[in-house]
């Protein structure tokens, strides 16, 4: 809403690009692996933010699009030798088409009912694919190593996957920013605040919500395609992992829902914290406990999330941090 007074988006993209280049510059593979995961989480959290933060619809089972994109792309690569880049796009498009089909009915539900329905859809999809033999059923699918030959071996394939994941994350963040600053974004936020009022001022809520849902499904589908391409294996439990879904919600809330920077800050912080907990022997076993405690503290005391809190505490920052 606020007119551009600071080059927020370019600055943000530059920071992310510099971080992304870091492991390549110092040739550190384990750092690259960590950042691969972080950019994936930024994609997931920023996508959820579009439907949850801007529109006010809590999509608990959003990971379903990550899984679908992963499965479609994997299937194309394994059975038709499709190039990864082609397969990723060709996998994400049907995933978003499914979002369109299920979005129309379930976005009529409000509040808790919508949240429950999204959980149901993810679980239905997971258990159905468990039985779907073309996708390998409960065992899933895995690549022959020869698949990676097209890309110059597994090492180069991993590099390609990393590059694509970074680009997907940057595209998600850019889209999130553009939506927030657009008329469309304003209509989403009006729906979030009061759907009846939105309708009376001339917004068609049903349409706006479905468009937001479809957009927010596209990037997780791309991320899923990329993740499982690099992984070489895909199975239902990993592809449709409800825990990962809820974790991306947590990241959103941690950083601040409804802001562009919030999900990024939340994803980075959450991943850093998890890494810290796992590698500290005394805390390794209590990893989940501490993650829960942290979440509770944020939910109870920092409702707006870190970015939201900063923006409220120092209104000057509103012009600089979106």
């Amino acid at each position: 809403m606020i007119r551009v007074r600071a080059p927020f988006l370019p600055a943000l993209l530059v920071v992310l690009a510099v971080v992304a280049a870091l492991p390549l510059a110092v040739n550190n593979n384990s750092l690259r692996e960590e950042l691969f995961l972080m950019f994936m989480l930024i994609t997931l959290a920023s996508s959820i933010n579009i439907i949850m933060g801007y529109t006010g619809y809590v999509s608990f089972g959003h990971i379903v699009f990550f899984g679908l994109g992963g499965y479609f792309a994997f299937y194309l690569m394994q059975n038709f030798n499709a190039h990864f880049l082609v397969a990723a796009l060709a996998g994400a498009i049907p995933a978003s088409a499914i979002a369109l089909v299920i979005g129309v009915p379930i976005l009529r539900l409000r509040g808790a009912y919508f949240a429950l329905a999204t959980i149901g859809i993810n679980e239905a999809m997971r258990t159905a694919i468990n039985n779907f033999e073309p996708f390998g059923g409960a065992v899933g699918m895995f690549f022959n190593f020869s698949v990676y030959d097209t890309y110059g071996g597994a090492r180069n394939a991993a590099l390609l996957a990393y590059g694509v994941m970074v680009v997907v994350a940057l595209a998600t963040v850019t889209t999130s920013y553009l939506i927030r600053r657009s008329k469309f974004g304003l209509s989403l936020m009006a729906i979030r605040e009061d759907q009846d009022v939105a309708m009376v001022v001339g917004i068609d809520p049903a349409r706006a919500k479905v468009v937001a849902y479809v957009i927010s499904s596209f990037f997780p589908a791309l991320a899923g395609a990329t993740f499982f391409f690099k992984n070489g294996i895909i199975e239902p439990g990993v592809a449709f992992d409800l825990l990962r879904s809820i974790e991306s919600l947590v990241m959103c809330v941690l950083g601040g829902t409804g802001t562009v920077a919030g999900p990024i800050v939340g994803a980075a912080l959450y991943e850093w914290l998890r890494g810290f907990l796992i590698t500290t022997p005394a805390l390794a076993n209590f990893q989940l406990f501490l993650a829960g405690l942290l979440l509770l503290v944020v939910v109870l005391f920092v409702t707006a999330g870190l970015v939201g809190w900063l923006r409220n505490r120092y209104p000057v920052l509103r012009a600089y941090i979106q």
Binding site: V250, V253, L288, A291, G292, L293, L295, L296
Partner: peptide
């Protein structure tokens, strides 16, 4: 989220 944190 609060009850989920208790879950964790």
């Amino acid at each position: 989220l609060a009850t989920y944190s208790v879950n964790l």
